[in-house]
Design a protein around this nucleic acid. Structure first.
Lengths: 256, 256
DNA sequence: GCTCGTATTTATCAAATGACCACTATATCG
DNA sequence: CGATATAGTGGTCATTTGATAAATACGAGC
């Protein structure tokens, strides 16, 4: 499959239809076009995809890509920037804070909108490819999520469902609350992974699913604040499990 | 960085310390060793990692790898098999079914154990690399998860928390229940992704987090069965949202 | 200690790939 | 129409990489 006899190679060279010269475009437009096709291409093939292949998809000579992006790396950077920060909606945070709307409705609106804008083929795959390749590249995004969404969600929850003990939330409890928000985020992100990475079937009524997830999230938060696991009880709660489990797991994730 | 002057190249060749001949090993042992190192190597570098690099890590000549795996592809297949199916514990399903133990405890035990066995560096990264590269490769794993875990969890939940209406669960409701199980799975998987793909900090008390997630999951299932969103109400529940959202989202995920 | 099987290595090939440069063609402007 | 700027192309180089084959060296058995 990889091996091609030199005869074949020669034949291919002879047969190779002379390239139809690509139409002359404005420099800026061409650059945009390259980036857009690159997003599509690298989302499909990973960052190890070749510039030749990409150029073929664009319908342009390989060397032209290098006119606009002297290093492949620069193109990849551009692809990453384009995909991410471009799709962040600054209204999300302020809408989440708008107490004229019921908390649950705000949450649903946000997550429906987030899913719609962000959980697409290109987005998910490029995010993951980038994460796998160079750690830390998504830190900005996570900071954004944390600072403007996650903390807001928790704050607004406590405003919507004030609890008598909510004043003395200790560090552990705050961490667990944050984990519940991560969990909601993960659940929705994973739907997109199932579709665009694993290519499995997902339910058609995604919007209903998201609403159920949001409702479940609120229930979970309530449960946690109701004192379901005030952490001093947490130890007791799995007292019937072999104690080793917890330790082994913790060390497992710590090491490798 | 890629460009090396021919002088450098020559110098490198001259300098290249003569390989210390690798100790002669039993054929079977060597094969095992190669696979093990390959798991580690490809988990880190992705399946595009080179056989030369791998051989260097093993401390062996590149061509030796080809003695045991005549095609790189064959080695990759082996790596995949090794990582996956090897770690599946058949007891999980039967333990989940053991009604002598309270439902919640069974769930916690399973998810703590699953996390411990499965959410490691190699496992997560190889699963994702594989999924990104060739769609469908994880189908077997998902079928296993679905058939022996997810459906069991739902069955056992209904046994533990029988509800008057639980007889007439329609198709939509069953789908939503399944999605809640997916959501729990996703939440735990994502913790591992945060650690091993994105390399961000995760809470130290992972076991507590998992327990909270399991409790939240049960609350969510209860909520769903309590009639929180009997689907005829689902439409109403976000009546205050722009209707377009739902449609746009659905079509978004459908197309791209 | 010599022979022989085979684990391991060195050397090499063909293809693919990132990068570069000189050349060509085309649109625009006087 | 002819000059000019520049978008676009072909060809090529050095390196990397999967793959192969011939040469080497190690250890077991006589």
């Amino acid at each position: 499959m990889r091996l091609v006899t030199s005869q074949n190679a020669a034949a291919k060279k002879k047969t190779a239809a002379r390239r139809v010269r690509a139409p002359r475009m404005d420099s800026g437009e061409r650059k945009r076009m390259i980036v857009e096709k690159a997003i599509e291409y690298f989302a499909k093939n990973g960052f190890e995809g070749s510039t030749r292949d990409l150029a073929r998809e664009i319908g342009v000579a390989q060397s032209l890509v290098y006119r606009y992006f002297p290093k492949k790396e620069l193109l990849l950077d551009q692809v990453y920037e384009e995909v991410y920060l471009a799709r962040w909606n600054p209204l999300w945070e302020s809408d989440l804070r708008n107490r004229d709307v019921p908390f649950e409705a705000r949450l649903k609106k946000y997550y429906l909108d987030y899913a719609q804008n962000v959980l697409r083929n290109d987005w998910v795959r490029i995010l993951i490819f980038a994460g796998l390749k160079q750690e830390g590249i998504n830190d900005r995004l996570f900071k954004l999520l944390h600072d403007s969404i996650f903390t807001t969600v928790i704050t607004e929850f406590h405003h919507a469902f004030p609890s008598p003990t909510s004043i003395d939330r200790d560090k552990d409890k705050r961490e667990l609350e944050l984990e519940l928000v991560w969990s909601l985020h993960a659940s929705i992100f994973y739907i997109s992974m199932r579709k665009w990475v694993y290519k499995t079937k997902i339910p058609s009524k995604i919007n209903s699913v998201i609403e159920v997830l949001v409702e479940g999230f609120i229930e979970s938060l309530k449960h946690l604040n109701r004192g379901g696991v005030p952490l001093d009880q947490a130890a007791k709660s799995h007292a019937d499990l072999p104690k080793r489990n917890s330790f082994k797991l913790a060390s497992q994730l710590a090491r490798s």
